[in-house]
Structures are given as structure tokens and as C-alpha cells.
Design a protein around this nucleic acid. Sequence first.
DNA 1: AACCCGTGGAA
DNA 2: TTTCCAAGGGT
Length: 324
Amino acid sequence: MSTSATAADSDASDLQKSLLSWYRHSRRNLPWRRTRDPYAIWISEIMLQQTRVAAVLDKYAQFLAQFPNVKALADASLDEVLTVWSGLGYYRRARALHQAAQMVVHHLHGKFPDTAAGWRQLPGIGRYTSAAIASIAFNEPAAVVDGNVERVLERLDGERHEGERLWERAEQLLAKRAPGDWNQAMMELGATICLPQNPQCLVCPVNGPCKTRGPLQSRPQPKRKRAELWYALYARKNSVLLVQRPADHSLMAGMWELPAIRANGVEPLHKLRHSITDTDYAVFVVRGRTAKKHGKWVTHEEAHRMAITGLTRKILRKHFAREA
DNA sequence: AACCCGTGGAA
DNA sequence: TTTCCAAGGGT
């Protein structure tokens, strides 16, 4: 068979060299880049889903310290896992992580899959995450597409790719001899240079072949919603009453919070703002008065060692700061 | 395809 | 103050 390289092959090769070289010199020093342990890589990929690096750093260290391997995670209770996850958001990730750990231990003899297809059978792991883990931890030539990669390809090619075309384009460019570094290089470029706003094109390692070198056509943004949330704060001495959300609730299942109440005209103890996905909430906390039988009385310190929601954390911090 | 799921920091 | 977003998955 012919071995002559096409122009497209040559272009891809130059692009690969430029980007890989840049990545190996300029990448951020992140903890999950110092390991090839599939378990540690897996945890990092789940935590990083739709979540900023800065928010993940602390949780990542804490999670690995408490659950150092898949057996420890599988043996832990869901509540323990949710407690560490508390504040990170998207709590279904923690549930799926726990469930996947038990599947690996009980059905796969504690041995992780070594292919993207195998990883994808596990809950909470889709096309992106399976390819990320397989390429980084097992050197499988599987391209990833995340928000960064989609944006980088849009600028590079001067057109948006959608659906399956997007994945095909990512596969075309993949450096098959270094898939883990390549995938991370594409994402690192998107996260640090090829930004949504104000891209740093002057210092971009691939500005030569880039067809855009500037702002992208903006997309219409879905309008944000507004709503109110009302909670009752029952306080005695140093304790407050928390209740647990139903385990089968679609929103923050199993997490602890203040008892929710209907809106009323009582002057709130606390007023604050909180956003959950596409809704901006005005939050009102009134003093609890009626008898309350269900729930758990906890101190501020105890609450922070429970699986409380981010909003609950925010309310309690404000409340006990005022008490002090 | 469209929608839902959290959070807090930056602009 | 408000807007925008960040290494997606599940349905």
C-alpha cells in the first residue's frame, strides 16, 4: 500500500507537534497529572465534569485521602461519599461513582476495565469520560470532545461541527501515539488560551493554522429563571434542625438541608441569593416556631461534617456568624 | 434534541 | 448587581 503522506496528514502532524510541545512545556501542574493510577484518573474526571479546576482541587485530595482505592470506595456508605462531595454539586455524580465502585469490586473482581468501551458500561461514565480515562490511563487512541475541544475545533476550522461530525473531527486530529497527552493538550488549550471570551491568540501555539484567531459568533443564551426559596431555621442553643431530602428525589437526593416551608409574610431572619443551574433564587430564612418532630439537631461543626447542600452551608455560615 | 442536574468565582 | 460559565451524563 502507498505510504505517501497527504497534505492533510502533514498538516495534522505539524499541528500535533506544535500543540504537544506547547502542552509539555506549559501545562498546569495539577495533581491528577502526576499519576497513571486509573482510580485516581477516574475520580478526577468525574469531579471535573462541568466543574472548575479550582473547585475540584481540595475535594480531590480529600476524596483520595478518605477513599484511597476502589475497594475503600465500594465499602464506604453512600452517606460518607455524599459528605465528602458536599458543596461540589451534581450529587448524582457521587451516587454513580459509589455504584460504579461496587460494580467493579463485586462484578469485575476489583479490576478496572482497560478499554473505553469497558469503562462506558459503568454508571456516570459517558462518551467523553470513557475516552478520557482510556487515553490517559491506558494509552488507548480514543479522542475526547468536551466544551474546550468543541471550541478549539470551531476556531481552528472556522466553522462549528455538530453531533457525530464533531467526534469524527476530533478523531482525525488525535495524535495516536500520545492520545492522553493530546486530549489533555486540546483541553488545556481551550482552558488557558482558546478562551470563550478574549482568546489569547498572540501566544497560541497553533495560531498559524487557525482559521479564526479571534472572537466567536455568539450563541443565544437561554434566559435565566427567577424563583424564591423559603426555609425555617429551628434553633436551640448551639444547634439547628436539619432534614434529609428523599433518596429518590431528582434534586440533591439524600442531602441534608433546613426544612423547606411555604412562602409567608414573616420577616425573614436571613435573606440571600443562590443560583442552581439556570435559576436564580431569592432565599428567605424565617425562624421556626411550630413544633417539628422529624429531623436531626446538629451543631454548626456537626453540620459541616454531614452531607449538606451548598445552599445550606451558606445559610449556616451566615447564621452562626451573626450569632457569634 | 432538549432538558435537567449545583456551585462559586470571574467579568 | 447580573451574567456567564466549567474536563458531561442521563433521560
